[in-house]
Every structure is written in C-alpha cells, then in structure tokens.
Computed example of a mutant assay.
Amino acid sequence: MDWASAFSEISEKDLSRRQMLSALGGGGVVLGGAKAADNVLIGYGVLVGTNLHDQDLSAVAGERLEPSPFATTVSGHEIQLKEDEIRVHDGEGRQAIPLSASAAADADQLDTELELAGQPLGQLVSDLSAIEADDYRFEFFGYEDFFRRVRGTETRPFTIEALRGDRYQHVEPLVIESFSGASPEQPKAVLEGLVEGFRDETYYDIPRYLAGSVEDNILFGSVDLRKHFRTPTEYDAMKAGETAGMFCYEFTWRSVEALHSVPAQQQETPVVGAKVFDERHKHVYTGVASAFKEDGELVIPMTFVDYTHSTLYDDLRLRWLLGEGMEGYDKRHRATDIYWQP
C-alpha cells in the first residue's frame, strides 16, 4: 500500500482527531506501543545505554552552563547583565562593573554605596567569574534531598537570575498560583502542585504520539500528521479547556515558566529551570538547580522532575509499574544535553 499517498489525501481534509485516529488504524497503535515500550524500558543501562545515576552528569550539565542577559530591580535600582558587564541604573545615571574577578572589590564597594540588598553586584562578579573559570562543582540529588541540601545555605539568587536569563518570565504569578495551588515564591510547593494541576487540566497526548510514530517511521516525514492534533498548551488555554493533550517538551516549558514567574531573590529556595534532552528516547524533562557558597566554593545542586511520567502513568494506571510522582533523578532517565536557557 502507498501509505504516503493515502495519508496525503486524508490530510488534505479538515479531519477531527477521532477521524485521524481511525485512519491511523491498528498499525499506528502497534507501532506507537512498541516505540513507547522502547522509550520506557530500554536504553537506561540494564542491557544497553546509561542513566542519570551512572552518567558523568557534571560534564553534561556544565557543557552549556553560562549566564544570559537579564534585568531585575533591587532596592530601587535596575540591575542589568549585558554582555561582559553589570549595569546599575538609578535616577541620576548608570554605572557599570566588568564581569571579572579583578572587579570584585569595586562590586562590593558599589553594593555598599547604593545599599543594594543582598549584595547582587558582588555576588554576580564572584560567581560568574567562577563559572567562566570552571571553578565550581555540581551536586545531584533526588527531589526531596535537593531541597534539604539547599536549606540553610548561603544561596545565590542573583546568580540564579543570570542562569535563567530573561526567557520564560512572562506568566503572571497569580496564574501559577491558581494552577498549582501554591505561590511561586515557594518553588517546592509549586513543583508538587503542578503534578495535580497537569492531571486535572490536561493529559499526555497519546493520539499525537501515535500520529508522530506513523509520520516518522512509516511515512518518513512526507506527510505532517501531527498538525491534526496540535492545540494551544499555555496555562490560559489549559484552564479554558482548549488543550487537547501535551507532549513532554510542553510540560517542560510550562514547568520552567512556573519556576521563573517571580524573581529568584523572592523565592524561599532560588531556582532555575532547565530543559533536559534525552536523544536516545527523544524525551524532554525538567532540570531544577540552585546555587550557594560553601567554604568559599560555588556549589550548584541539581535535581530532575518529569511531568510526562507523573501525568501519563497516572492516566494509564501504570504508576504501580513505572513509579509514582514526578521524580526524575532515577535509573529511568538519561541526559544527552542540558539547556539552561531552554
């Protein structure tokens, strides 16, 4: 059978999701099921492959670790990270401090002169110079241990702002609070609240997954089947009932938006959300990191959460087999790349 011609004729019509699924037929379900089994069970180091516990995660996480431009307001002064300098604006003009370890004394002095709460300039100069020189260390934890590790440390919220950059900061905090049942100033509670929020408002888009399996493995990209299943996935669309399911990268984007909806210096535990990509399984999930100083050394602790797992396995009633909740730092996840400004 000429599958490409058949699906091309079908796709020219304005079909519903149900009609397209009917056109896909049992072959798509079988293919999608086989691909799903491969994604869930194979390639994590039991027979072949690796996983987050066995990988050199510091190398993966550090490959793209760098600051990005951002702007925030501290004690009535606008602070901007631009290229290789930090700019401080007030009503009378602008001052600039270079991002260099040699400028540490000047940064500390300006923090004092302007009475900047939290000493953001000194923090940024010190920490970003350390990152540039690879003079820091990662630590990796399960979800609960991550927050226990950070609690009580000398956290570095302005360094977290620099690792976030200006992206994914456009969702209002009240939207996140309504969806998750928690204030974004409490990131642990938000991460937990997103589990039920996603389960209540959406689901993993299995029909789109099956369509993609046929498109990639039978039609080799000659026909766009996924377009029949795409719907808006923003928070307002979910609340309005316009979202007909989400993919892994959409869960990841929404979770990063939730973490970044308030400045890091306002959070109980300042965190940055990252996109973690597993090339072997074509899977994306969320990395969560913080930063603190310990004995003069910059430490970047990190954990991982996966809302595809917490949503899909709940939908399919497979939590008894594949685990419960959003925990991602386990032997069923691996990382090819970690993107700090996803």
Rank of each mutant, 00 (worst) to 15 (best):
H53L: 15
E66K: 14
Q109F: 06
A34C: 08
A36F: 09
D111Q: 10
D134K: 14
L15V: 10
E132Q: 14
T72S: 12
A36Y: 07
E66P: 00
I86Q: 10
N51K: 06
K13V: 00
A34E: 11
Y44F: 15
Q119R: 15
F140I: 08
K35E: 12
V74L: 03
F147W: 14
G91Y: 05
E113C: 00
E63K: 15
S129H: 05
L41V: 10
D108F: 07
L81G: 04
V48A: 13
E63Q: 13
G62P: 01
R17K: 10
E115H: 10
D135E: 14
Q95E: 10
H89V: 02
P120G: 06
G26L: 13
A130D: 15
Q109T: 09
F141E: 04
K35L: 09
A105F: 02
G43E: 02
H53M: 09
Y44S: 08
G43C: 08
A101T: 11
L15F: 08
L21R: 13
E92P: 00
A103T: 12
V74E: 10
A61M: 14
L81R: 10
Q119T: 13
D38T: 05
R137P: 02
V60R: 07
A37C: 06
D56I: 07
S100M: 07
F140K: 12
D84H: 12
S11M: 14
G26R: 12
H77W: 03
A36E: 14
V46K: 13
G118D: 02
T153V: 07
G122S: 08
R17G: 13
N51F: 03
G76Q: 07
E113F: 01
Q95P: 00
E132W: 06
D90F: 02
